[in-house]
């Protein structure tokens, strides 16, 4: 399958304010060497807990941030080294849907104008009637009504607002849509509707998704391939079955065990509770970053950071338990 996006060893550091003239400022290492490929038509999921760098990754992909080290290629072109009209064209092709359907919409613009704005910015259509028609087409596609065109965001329910967000993201006919926690603020019954809408849009428009979420159920439902992030890195990456059935990394194990599910609840399986919390991304100790919480930690884990290696075909893991050579 054609590779649309390729991230090569991407790092993103955020230096903090210098505390003293004589000290080098602390650095938050939000993303610490992420590589992956996004292939046309697939839905790639990225899971992890807060602070693991998944949102920084999405900001890098839509060019809101530049990587400190590494590069991101869109159809073999480094997106952060483009400029002018070229940059605008890539932006057209990579769109984003954000988490909070309330904050993501300007309250004083009508729904129709919100969705029309990308067309105006990217100047792909100029006649007012043509714009209106395009907006109404997309409205219909996402499940909004024609009358909704002149309504303000406040008068919509949360689910409808997310539909406006989605309409705005797809109106320029993008190839890739990044869904950054796009359903986490919604109630389950509404969430199910929106997830189905994503599936429909994928089918009709041949969209490619990068789905970023902390809800493992959503990722399992939506994604063919999944990367599990911990402290700025992928610790495991593989197909849906690799991650959920042939789980390798102790962190993935713990994560899956900690998720309450309706099925598991009645069985009363004991769950594996991780001790401690995610360490601070400021002073990351040497060795494996998961070592402090890992039930299977060994001596080597404290000294050498495991690399992401291919353990089985297309199933990658960064853990010394799986024959990591140093």
């Amino acid at each position: 399958m054609e590779v649309l996006i390729e991230a090569k060893d991407v790092h993103k550091d955020y230096p903090l304010k210098r505390k003293s003239l004589f000290k080098t400022p602390d650095v938050v290492k939000a993303v610490r060497g992420v590589s992956f490929r996004l292939r046309r038509g697939e839905t790639f999921g990225c899971v992890g807990e807060s602070g693991c760098g998944k949102s920084t990754l999405s900001r890098l992909l839509i060019m809101l941030e530049e990587p400190t080290v590494g590069e991101i290629l869109y159809q073999d072109e480094n997106i952060h080294q483009t400029g002018g009209s070229k940059k605008l064209r890539i932006r057209e092709k990579i769109q984003l849907v954000l988490q909070d359907p309330y904050l993501a919409l300007p309250p004083k613009m009508k729904a129709g104008d919100i969705v029309a704005e990308p067309i105006r910015i990217h100047n792909t259509d100029s006649a007012a009637t043509a714009i209106r028609e395009r907006v109404l087409d997309v409205f219909k596609e996402v499940g909004l009504k024609e009358d909704d065109y002149y309504r303000y965001p406040l008068s919509f329910s949360a689910g409808q607002r997310q539909m406006i967000n989605i309409a705005r993201a797809v109106i320029l006919n993008p190839e890739i849509v990044i869904l950054d926690e796009a359903v986490s603020a919604l109630d389950v019954s509404v969430q199910a509707n929106i997830l189905n809408l994503f599936a429909d849009l994928r089918e009709q428009r041949g969209l490619t998704y990068l789905l970023i979420a902390h809800d493992i159920g959503v990722v399992k439902h939506m994604c063919a391939r999944i990367g599990v992030m911990y402290l700025g890195k992928f610790v495991e990456l593989g197909s849906n079955t690799d991650i959920f059935v042939k789980t390798l990394h102790p962190y993935t194990h713990a994560l899956l065990s900690a998720v309450p599910t309706i099925e598991k609840g009645l069985e009363k399986q004991p769950i594996e509770v991780l001790t401690g919390e995610v360490p601070s991304p400021i002073n990351i100790p040497p060795g494996c970053s998961f070592e402090s919480r890992c039930p299977k930690g060994m001596n080597i884990c404290r000294q050498v950071e495991p690399k992401l290696i291919e353990s089985e075909k297309d199933h990658f893991v960064a853990c010394h338990l799986y024959g990591n050579e140093s």
Binding site: V188, A192, D215, G217
Partner: peptide, 16 residues
């Protein structure tokens, strides 16, 4: 309408 962690992946979720 709650996504499941076990079993086959469904193409669509049931909704209300």
């Amino acid at each position: 309408s709650t996504p499941r962690l076990s079993g086959e992946r469904l193409a669509r979720l049931k909704t209300i």
